[in-house]
């Protein structure tokens, strides 16, 4: 039970941490000052969520770990984020497509966690759901603007969606950890949010005049179990280098 809860917390915490690190790569390079700040705000919100979730995971581990040791001293195989969030930023359309698919899932997932029987998890969800509601509002708005924008912006966004779409499937595939957490009333069955997610995505795509990729096809997965793409190790190399070279360094 406690191992499953630890794994479960890592999954949500690592999703937030890795996506935050990815978005942070845009800092100072956004297409406009206003976009740059908006995106780094999202990154900071996610970092805040990651800190809460990883602190709780560290507490559950009870082996002297803390949020920092979990973030900076684990290897890629020990990370439990989905493959979607570790995908490279690409161009702005790639970043936006990844963000939109994640936000739409995250806002549903957090709403489920609001009724978690685990009071600490429900409390984190309550704080995070407000942030993610705004993230989703923002990414949905940009999807419509760029999808239903110029010919070039639609083409770029459609290409980005088609590229990142296969990675969305993993969000809805459950395993033994999910089953145990669902049975305990702590978590939820990932498959149970799929229809609502797809309905929302379909609605936004329709307004944005974007094509929904065909069902089926390649479905890469394994991130939740620690099997990642090479992109994650490169991301971690950059994120962890300081703490790895100077363990315990602080401001």
């Amino acid at each position: 039970m406690s191992t499953a809860r630890y794994e479960y917390l890592l999954r949500f915490g690592d999703n937030a941490l890795i996506l935050s690190q990815r978005l942070g790569e845009w800092c100072g390079k956004g297409p406009a000052l206003e976009e740059d700040m908006a995106l780094t705000n999202v990154a900071l919100d996610l970092l805040g969520q990651a800190r809460l979730l990883l602190s709780l995971a560290a507490e559950a581990a009870g082996n002297g770990a803390d949020e920092d040791s979990l973030a900076y001293h684990r290897d890629d195989r020990a990370f439990r984020n989905v493959l979607l969030v570790e995908q490279p930023n690409g161009n702005y359309a790639d970043t936006l497509a990844r963000q939109f698919l994640f936000d739409a899932w995250s806002s549903l997932a957090l709403r489920r966690l609001l009724s978690s029987s685990d009071a600490a998890i429900a409390a984190i969800a309550e704080k995070a759901v407000k942030e993610v509601s705004y993230h989703l509002r923002r990414s949905s708005d940009l999807m419509v603007r760029l999808g239903d924008g110029t010919e070039r912006s639609r083409a770029m966004l459609q290409t980005a969606i088609d590229k990142v779409w296969p990675y969305s499937h993993e969000l809805f595939i459950g395993d033994a950890v999910d089953a145990e957490m669902t049975a305990a009333g702590i978590g939820f069955d990932p498959a149970s949010v799929h229809d609502e997610w797809l309905a929302y995505v379909r609605e936004v795509f329709a307004e944005a005049t974007l094509k929904l990729p065909a069902a089926g096809g390649w479905m890469p997965k394994g991130g939740k179990q620690g099997l990642h793409s090479e992109h994650l190790s490169k991301l971690l190399a950059e994120m962890q280098v300081l703490q790895r070279s100077h363990p315990g360094a602080s401001w």
Binding site: L33, M37, N41, Y134, R138
Partner: peptide, 20 residues
């Protein structure tokens, strides 16, 4: 002040730039 293509995005941008 800030730059934005229309009022809705100006509001969003204002939220992100000035109410952090």
């Amino acid at each position: 002040s800030l730059h934005a293509p229309d009022a809705t995005m100006a509001l969003n941008n204002a939220r992100d730039v000035y109410t952090r």
